[in-house]
Design a protein around this nucleic acid. Structure first.
Length: 555
DNA sequence: GTGATACCTG
DNA sequence: CAGGTATCAC
């Protein structure tokens, strides 16, 4: 199934690919072990790689690159099952000549660190280099230890002779390993065996490390998403952190929380958990006040900070990918895959301006599972919102950010008109479809809202409540939590009091209706809807910003 | 007819 | 949340 193999014309190359899996999965004793008795251990390696360190590394890296390319290609291609052509073919016209193909190389205007970038010379950004550098150093250290343990002097003996024919292909990386592969010749069999084992281990470790680094780069898209929802998953309505702190160590250089993008912003607002019921508002109008500011991030697990640095950097690298607003940088000439469902968590894929297709990948989750919050997940189903408009020239769509914003807007308006929506989503190119979708969103919001109201009203009745006035939605109430969880999952927005008032009123109306037995009438809810529909509040101006609330999740 | 909304479903 | 459908108002 490995597409890579399909393009391998040289048997020996195939071996290199086969070798990779070995190192990855079990570091199972490779055929190399056969060479134990040979005076030339390296030559024993069955026709494969290890014979020549340079070759091995070169091939290994190429194999790695091949995989990367495969992934990249996959990202550019539609969700269609990966055509088994993609062999990295270092030389061949790998890409499918089809439509997608042209997309692959397409370089979006803005510097795109994206994996989709040209392979060979992909920069990967300083971050990647740094990591690779680190890895190399680590490898070096390991080697030193090994050599010291096995044969202190051996290390200095390097018979450099085996440089054989690798010529220009040799790279520092190769040379580093070379020491190992050559050492055995001068070591006692026991030490040799040990070195062999260690070598394998190292190879596997390096392989994984490289994978990890590459994945990080390739996963930027999702990484960003993660970051978008990076509510450090954490906060539940009541301000507690549901985040299970990852083990530290993941991140060196943890940045002070203050350095965190948003939440770091200190804000004295009372935590959601407070009981601010008493705060009657003068009116439903909710002034664009500081409260609109994202709530202070409450207690992101200190450990979490460990993961921040990386993300922040990624953000910078990808900031443009995520750039919002019709800045015009994103043109519709990108790989526009019409299959919306292909990138569940790819926010970028939803960009109206045809952002590059970015595949989510579960990998990042493996790396930082805790980074996936419900907020993140919730947007998965949105991806499909990428809609292609005639000829794919215009790829407009609503992204998770829009949804998030819409949800927050729901706190102020339950029945927004299409005109209002247009005014508050300046970065959205409205058309019939988009408008309907957004209207539909609010319809869904209302549905959930009313369902909750009815549910709690009935519960109150069954609980023996008789006076509807007793029903008030407080911030620490269960109903509030349910609502907040739905519309403000990340809990990074302070629900306006006016919403609480409306919610209380709605609850009371349901209570009265049900109490009066009106629910026997099929349309008993209509009167309630009518009442509520007249209680929409003004939406804070800040919502008119095309970047709101995305900015909450950015640096 | 069309548009908006509610309701049901997956 | 999106689709589909039914209903209602214009």
């Amino acid at each position: 199934m490995d597409p890579n193999l399909t393009l391998l014309s040289q048997p020996s190359r195939a071996c290199s690919y086969l070798a990779e899996p070995c190192t990855k999965n079990g570091r199972s004793p490779s055929p190399r072990e056969q060479g134990r008795d040979s005076p030339f251990p390296w030559s024993q390696v069955p026709s494969s790689s290890l014979t020549d360190p340079d070759w091995f590394w070169d091939e290994h890296i190429q194999a790695k690159r091949a995989r990367v390319e495969t992934i990249v290609r996959g990202m550019c291609l539609s969700p269609n099952p990966p055509v088994p052509d993609n062999a990295p073919a270092r030389d061949s016209p790998c890409c499918p000549e089809r439509k997608r193909k042209q997309n692959v190389p397409v370089q979006q205007g803005p510097p795109k660190p994206g994996p989709a970038g040209d392979r060979g010379s992909r920069k990967g950004g300083p971050r990647v280099r740094e990591q690779l550098h680190l890895l190399k150093q680590q490898l070096k250290h390991l080697q030193e230890h090994i050599l010291q343990a096995a044969e202190p002097k051996a290390a200095s003996q390097g018979p450099g002779g085996s440089e054989t024919g690798k010529g220009p292909l040799s790279k520092h990386r190769v040379s580093e390993v070379k020491h190992q592969s050559e050492e055995p010749r001068f070591l006692p069999s026991g030490a040799r065996a040990l070195l062999e084992i260690l070598k394998k281990e190292l190879t596997g470790a390096i392989s994984q490390a490289v994978d990890s680094v590459l994945q990080k780069v390739l996963l930027d898209p999702s990484g960003h998403l993660t970051h978008l929802g990076r509510s450090f998953p954490g906060l539940v309505p009541d301000g507690r952190s549901e985040l299970s702190p990852p083990e530290g160590g993941a991140c060196k250089d943890p940045l002070p929380l203050a350095a965190l993008p948003r939440r770091a912003q200190p804000q004295t607002g009372a935590p959601l958990g407070n009981l601010s019921l008493a705060k009657p508002l003068d009116s439903p109008r909710y002034p664009a006040s500081p409260r609109m500011i994202p709530k202070p991030y409450q207690g992101p697990p200190a450990n979490c900070a460990l993961t921040v640095p990386a993300h922040i950097q990624e953000d910078q690298i990808l900031s443009q990918l995520l750039g919002h607003g019709p800045s015009g940088h994103w043109r519709g000439n990108l790989p526009q895959d019409s299959s919306p469902q292909s990138h569940p968590s790819s926010e970028a894929a939803l960009r109206p301006w045809g952002a590059a297709k970015l595949r989510p990948l579960a990998l990042s989750q493996q790396q930082c599972p805790w980074l996936f919050t419900s907020t993140c997940l919730e947007r998965l189903p949105l991806v499909p919102s990428v809609k292609m408009e005639q000829g794919g020239l215009q790829a407009e769509g609503l992204n998770p950010g829009h949804l998030k914003k819409a949800k927050l807007m729901f706190f102020f308006t339950r029945y927004p008109s299409s005109n209002l929506l247009k005014a508050y989503f300046p970065d959205v190119q409205f058309n019939r479809c988009i408008t309907s979708q957004m209207i539909k969103w609010f319809s869904n919001f209302r549905e959930f809202y009313y369902i909750q109201m009815e549910k709690f009203a009935r519960q109150a009745i069954s609980d023996g409540v008789t006076n509807p006035k007793m029903l008030v939605v407080l911030r620490n109430s269960e109903l509030f939590r349910a609502l907040n969880m739905h519309y403000n999952k990340g809990n990074d927005f302070e629900v306006p009091d006016c919403f609480l008032e409306i919610a209380s009123l709605t609850l009371q109306e349901f209570f009265r209706a049900v109490s009066a037995g009106k629910d026997s009438d099929p349309s008993w809810k209509k009167p309630i809807y009518k009442i509520i529909s007249k209680l929409d509040s003004d939406i804070p101006e800040i919502f008119k910003s095309s970047s709101y609330p995305q900015e909450l999740f950015r640096n």
